[in-house]
Computed example of a mutant assay.
Amino acid sequence: MRQVAERFRQAEEVAPEVSDERMALAALLVHVARVDGVVAASERDRLVALLAERFALGPAAARMLVNRADAADRASGDIEHFVDLAKRGLDHAARLQLIGLAWEVAKADGRIHEFEDDLIWRAAQLLDLDESAAAGARAAALAEGTGAAA
């Protein structure tokens, strides 16, 4: 009986409407996790948690968003399309927050790989964030928790 109730609960929270902003943000974060060649379980877990918190989603809905973003990222192969969508939908403060989230995803596996570092700096530039603001977002994200810096 519990299993049936759990399935109904999960069905209610699955399949959120995915706006361009959500997909752009999620795909950028998935791309950060994938750029070093491996999406570690810790990175995927962090992605799900960050997106669940950011968009007030349940765990199943957040996992579905990550899966959709993963497919979108694989189909695109580049972040510029997603950056353009994010740039249109996010103000300066939200773009800074996005870069902070990217650093959190990058550090989730205990190490920030050189490719992750380069990609996040590139994304910050494409989002029209100045270097000092992006560096501040990096410092804040790396200071939280016990993630390792590059």
Rank of each mutant, 00 (worst) to 15 (best):
R2T: 09
R2Q: 09
R7G: 03
R7M: 11
R7D: 13
R7F: 10
F8P: 01
Q10V: 14
Q10R: 15
A11M: 15
P16A: 13
E17I: 15
V18G: 04
S19M: 11
S19W: 12
S19G: 11
E21H: 07
M23E: 13
A24V: 07
A24P: 03
A24T: 06
A24Y: 02
L25F: 04
L25Q: 04
L25V: 13
A26V: 02
L28M: 11
H31C: 02
V32W: 00
A33I: 01
V35L: 06
V35D: 04
G37D: 10
G37Q: 10
A40L: 00
R44T: 03
R44L: 01
A49S: 12
L50W: 00
E53L: 08
R54G: 02
A56R: 11
L57K: 07
P59T: 11
P59V: 09
A60E: 15
R63D: 10
L65W: 01
V66L: 05
N67T: 12
N67G: 09
A72R: 08
A72D: 11
D73M: 12
D73Y: 09
A75F: 04
E80M: 11
H81M: 12
F82C: 08
V83R: 06
A86S: 15
A86P: 10
K87H: 15
R88N: 15
G89P: 05
D91F: 14
D91A: 15
H92P: 05
H92C: 08
A93W: 08
A94D: 13
A94C: 07
L96N: 10
I99R: 00
A102F: 00
A102Y: 00
W103G: 02
E104M: 06
V105F: 02
A108D: 00
A108Q: 00
D109P: 02
D109C: 03
I112V: 13
I112M: 02
E114C: 01
L119T: 04
L119Q: 05
L119F: 06
R122D: 14
Q125L: 12
Q125W: 11
L126A: 13
L126T: 06
A133I: 03
A135W: 04
G136H: 08
G136L: 08
G136V: 06
A137H: 04
A139P: 07
A143Y: 09
E144M: 14
T146E: 15
G147Y: 01
A148K: 09
A149V: 14
